[in-house]
């Protein structure tokens, strides 16, 4: 079974040379730590920066340079700043190659729910609805089940949706799955996790074809 850092490490393998990538808050943010250093990648933050770098050294924080999580950041050579309409123009216009975000639920037709739990304080969707509605290549990073042990990989989402039919791939603590027209296609299993265990933790239709390889990093 993977921890959050290992989920991020596995997703980092999906990042290709020359990609512009938008990382959501939580596990997706960790992906930046595992991207190979022999490829060129630029991270976009939807509040208006491309070419995001690591956190600043203490004493070098700048209130005018933050990411979408409102954290102080730095920029790398080649970076640029822009306004919010242009930022979402990049996203809506499909100029961003890969979007990685967290989810509360994903359904077998690629619907995603990650912004609202009825009856609880609703903080808002931020840029998530724009991202999932427009991005061509969306990977969800999440735990396979919720704290109560219930599957988050579902036939149908029960929570209010963020977007419909948009998720392409899911990486959880148990498995890598592709969202296909016929359901979740199991691609890889986490080290030490059996296909049976993944099946048990998956509520939606899981397609198992042949030997399922163990993940490598």
């Amino acid at each position: 079974m993977l921890d959050k850092n290992q989920i991020a490490q596995r997703i980092a393998k999906e990042v290709r040379d020359g990609y512009y990538v938008n990382l959501g808050i939580g596990i997706p943010t960790l992906v930046a730590n595992y991207v190979r250093d022999d490829i060129e990648v630029e991270f976009q933050s939807e509040n208006g920066v491309l070419g995001m770098g690591p956190f600043p050294f203490e004493g070098e924080e700048d209130a005018d340079i933050i990411n979408a999580g409102k954290q102080t950041i730095t920029t790398l050579p080649g970076a640029s700043f822009f306004d919010s309409a242009m930022s979402f123009g990049m996203i809506r216009g499909q100029h961003v190659d890969l979007t990685i975000l967290g989810a509360m639920e994903v359904s077998e037709n690629g619907d995603i729910a990650n912004w609202k739990i009825p009856g609880k304080m609703v903080k808002g969707m931020g840029g998530a609805m724009d991202l999932v509605a427009s991005a061509d290549n969306i990977i969800v990073a999440m735990m396979h089940t919720n704290r109560a042990g219930a599957s988050k990989v579902l036939k149908q989402c029960s929570l209010p949706l963020t977007g419909v039919g948009c998720v392409k791939k899911i990486v959880t603590n148990l498995a890598v799955m592709e969202v296909t027209n016929d359901g979740f296609k199991l691609l890889e299993r986490a080290p030490g996790v059996t296909v049976e265990a993944i099946k048990q933790a998956t509520d939606g239709h899981l397609i198992i074809e042949g030997e399922i390889p163990e993940m490598s990093f």
Binding site: E58, D64, T72
Partner: peptide, 12 residues
């Protein structure tokens, strides 16, 4: 004041 909401830094 330009208050910082999430002060995040890395160690030297």
């Amino acid at each position: 004041e330009k208050r910082i909401e999430q002060r995040t830094v890395r160690q030297r």
